[in-house]
Design a protein around this nucleic acid. Structure first.
Length: 494
RNA sequence: GGUCCCUUCGUCUAACGGUUAGGACGAAAGAUUCUCAGUCUUUAAAUAGGGGUUCGAUUCCCCUAGGGACUACCA
């Protein structure tokens, strides 16, 4: 039988790392089995739905290069794939459940429900949940409620005796006493939309889903879904509950841990390949050695039995490392293309680099490549080049074991050496060698004579190597900055 | 509170009864070096605790402890 899995997010927010991890596992499992990956939009929550979220879902999957075999936009034999477009279907099945005696109409107001809940909490009752008030309403009572114009919900009649078991590929059998299952959960809301429980069971069945891979937070409602399959007389699919993705404190990953939306990561300059590779490794591993995988490899190698059971903490630092590795694997040309939008956004450039500027940009890319963790790091690294920073405060020119006076004198000598080398047709690299020698001659650490130069040229204490900096800036601008620094320091020294 | 799930270095994980418990990130140290990176080398770092089963337990079973999830007309 062909494997068919689905990713079924609800468009109520930006795509989250945890959600995307679920999508990836489903996708890789389907591909590795020669099966199909279906996308289904669960937009049954009218309150929280947003168009932006739906668009973000599409953008995210496109960015990650995850294509669905059936779903919105592409269509398929079991459509529509957007639940709000399947509205009538849920009505039909919910009513059938009522007719068959597996479900019932409930007319309780949300005020009454709130009150019941409040009392249960205050009395610390061991029983939590709906009190099944409407479970055994007489036809007369129902008729009366209908006359009052109350829009009912439909609730599932959960058995109060016995127990329900479902099998999970990773966890084994999970059993729950029926009395512990959520008491008569709502299947169809009063606005006529289904809840997750109803919609997912109907759609998974109708769409021929063979394996459900979803986060472990769904485990408690597993038995409930089995009850639903039984009520419909359908065969449940295979379950595989995925370990959750947590933040550093061991709690469900959320915004207070840092970025959680894929869009955030994308904007900061994480590469889709790196994010995909790392995210796949949270809760899954191939063997004891290998951890770099391309998408194509994962599509072949992914093995559902190697998914771990315990939750994994999302390690931002390891993601950074992966991203740096992937950046270093890029060609200079591709990296340049990827970097350009960040320079544009920073207002450093408008349009493309052409002619001389293109050559300079290529130099910049090469210099910056080993230093980038995320693409947006280019902004800080190239600041000195695309803006004219103010001359730095005097203290910044002073390296360890140096003082203001000796730093000033060092810069004077630096400048003399640079000028004399360049005037004699030598390169800046030659000048660097002479500066190094000069430091030795005067018995100062090499760092002590380069720091004033660095700060003069970049106004920062951390920068690209001096030869790159000089070459990028050009002779004229470099001289101008050195002279400006000298002028300022001269005053300070007096 | 109730129910269910989980438990190997700080983190992600490997070892499907027999290993000096392996790798990676991070950390620390060193080398390279004009700063920062990068690269290379090295070091520290774990089987939650207690009982069993077994010739032998990280691995199987039980208990305890800790953590997490769920407990909505949200998914």
């Amino acid at each position: 039988m062909e494997v068919k899995v689905r990713y079924a997010p609800s468009p109520t927010g930006l795509q989250h790392i945890g959600g995307v991890r679920t999508a990836l596992f489903n996708y890789f499992f389907a591909k590795s089995q020669g099966g199909k990956f279906i996308l289904r939009v669960e937009d049954t929550d009218q309150e929280r739905y947003s168009d932006e979220s739906l668009q973000d879902l599409y953008d995210t999957l496109e960015w990650l290069n995850i294509k669905w075999d059936e779903g919105p936009v592409v269509g398929g034999p079991n459509g529509p794939y957007i639940q709000s477009e399947r509205f009538d279907l849920y009505q039909k099945y919910a009513k059938q459940l009522v007719e068959d005696g597996h479900a019932y109409y409930c007319y309780c107001s949300s005020e009454r429900l709130d009150e019941v809940r409040k009392q249960q909490q205050e009395s610390k009752s061991s029983y939590q949940g709906y009190d099944r008030h409407c479970r055994n309403l007489s036809p007369e009572e129902i008729a009366e409620k209908e006359k009052e114009g109350i829009k009912p919900v439909i609730r599932l009649k959960v058995p109060t005796e016995g127990k329900t078991t479902f099998h999970d590929v990773l966890m084994g059998d999970i059993t729950r006493k029926n009395k512990d299952i959520s008491p008569d959960p709502i299947l169809l809301k009063s606005d006529g939309f289904p809840t997750y429980h109803l919609a997912n069971v109907i759609d998974d069945h109708l769409m021929g889903i063979t394996h459900i891979m979803r986060a472990q937070e769904w485990i408690p409602s597993g038995p409930l879904h089995i009850l639903l399959y039984k009520a419909f007389g359908w065969e449940p699919p295979v379950y595989c509950h995925l370990p959750m993705v947590m933040g550093k404190d061991g709690k469900k990953l959320s915004k207070r841990h840092g970025s959680t939306s894929v869009r955030d990561f994308r904007e900061k300059g994480y590469l889709p390949e790196a994010l995909m590779n790392y995210v796949t490794l949270v809760g899954w591993s191939f063997d004891s050695e290998r951890e770099f995988f391309s998408q194509e490899e994962l599509e072949k190698l992914f093995d559902i039995t190697k998914i771990s059971k315990s939750p994994g903490i999302f390690d931002y630092k390891k993601l950074d490392w992966f991203n740096g590795q992937y950046i270093r694997m890029m060609s200079d040309e591709d990296l340049g293309k990827a970097l350009l939008p960040y320079l544009q956004k920073a207002g450093y450039v408008d349009g493309e680099f052409i002619g001389d500027k293109k050559a300079k940009f290529e130099e910049l890319v090469v210099a910056v490549k080993p230093r980038l963790k995320v693409l947006s790091d280019i902004v800080g690294l190239a600041y000195f080049l695309f803006t004219t920073p103010e001359v730095a405060p005097a203290e910044m020119f002073v390296a360890k074991k140096m003082d203001l006076k000796s730093s000033y004198e060092a810069l004077v000598k630096d400048y003399e050496i640079i000028k004399s080398n360049l005037d004699n047709g030598k390169s800046f690299e030659d000048a660097e060698a002479d500066i190094t020698q000069m430091a030795k001659d005067i018995g100062v650490k090499v760092n002590g004579v380069f720091t004033p130069l660095r700060v003069a040229l970049t106004s920062t204490t951390v920068s690209l190597p001096m030869s790159d900096t000089y070459n990028l800036l050009g002779k004229e601008e470099s001289y101008r900055r050195i002279e400006a620094a000298l002028k300022m320091l001269e005053k300070e020294v007096q």
